[in-house]
Design a protein around this nucleic acid. Sequence first.
DNA 1: TGCGCGATTCCCT
DNA 2: GGGAATCGCGCAG
Length: 205
Amino acid sequence: MSGQADISFLQHDTLEAARALLGKEIITEIDGEATSGFITEVEAYLGLDDRAAHTFGGRRTKKNEKMFNSFGHIYVYSMHGHNCMNFLTREKEHPEGVLIRGIEPNIGKEIMASRRSRENDLTTGPGKLTKALGIKRDLHNGMELNNGILTLREGRTPAVIEATKRIGIDTKEEAVDFPYRFIVKGNPHISRFKGRASENNGWKH
DNA sequence: TGCGCGATTCCCT
DNA sequence: GGGAATCGCGCAG
């Protein structure tokens, strides 16, 4: 096992941070059970000027309160009964972050399958992967990365990164077309995957 | 206090 | 590809 990743890259540009997160390994240790996966799909949300972001225009409520924190913290919100997880970037006055939308399971697949009550499609969506990893809003919203519960490690390197429109924000006017979703091209562990997996699932080596 | 919705998921056709 | 399930929370009243 290698050590924790240096997460200072989250302090700077959010779009760059989103790309840099692809391939990193997220590890949770919850109830004494370790689970992990390599990040395959993310979306950047650029705060005050991004109509699709929960913090657009400086909007601040009980729901998004934990977005107003510095880089390296996590923001977990719930919708439709599912939990979704963001890694915060930059400093408090820029409430921006990266939504984790897909991971490729690595450690503890049987635990993830048990939490998900299914054998396949364990982590191919933002609500699925939090459930597989054991992340819950009431327990983990506002936590810091690398504090013992949620750890980020250097993982794998994408061969090709593809940028697309974000998913599920069709009512957000001009923001609909912003290319702020990034995926490991050819990796099947992403939401709405179509076609055939690439050689080595799109990773180098 | 209540109504309506969403950065979703699942199952069906 | 479409529709139902589902629930915390924002906002109107």
